[in-house]
Simulated assay, not measured.
Amino acid sequence: MRFRLDIDMTDMTEEGQAAREIGRALRYWGGNLHHFALEPGDGSTITDSAHREIGNWRVVD
């Protein structure tokens, strides 16, 4: 099994914005992963601080 995290940084053009948004996503999802079984097929979208979808995480076989 693999845990995949995909974040689109295309629109993160402000200096330091990518690091802030990715750090925020990792803290948020890292703290919430215990709510998931982490089995193949589990996953969710990832949003930025403005609640726009910027990626997803998923568990794959």
Rank of each mutant, 00 (worst) to 15 (best):
M1V: 07
M1T: 07
R2E: 08
R2L: 02
F3P: 09
R4K: 07
R4F: 03
L5R: 05
L5W: 05
L5P: 09
D6L: 09
D6P: 01
D8V: 04
M9P: 07
T10P: 12
T10H: 13
M12I: 01
E14R: 14
E14K: 14
E15P: 09
G16I: 08
Q17E: 15
A18E: 13
A18S: 10
A18W: 11
R20V: 09
R20C: 03
R20G: 10
E21A: 04
L26Y: 04
L26M: 11
R27W: 11
W29P: 00
G30F: 10
G30N: 05
N32M: 13
N32D: 10
N32P: 00
L33K: 11
L33F: 12
L33P: 07
H35S: 05
F36N: 03
F36P: 01
A37W: 13
A37L: 11
P40S: 14
P40V: 15
G41R: 07
G41E: 12
G41W: 07
D42Q: 02
D42S: 04
S44Q: 02
T45F: 09
T45W: 04
I46V: 15
D48K: 03
S49Q: 08
A50C: 11
A50F: 06
A50D: 14
H51P: 01
R52N: 11
E53H: 07
E53R: 13
I54S: 07
G55Y: 00
N56D: 00
W57G: 04
V60P: 04
V60A: 12
D61K: 14
D61E: 15
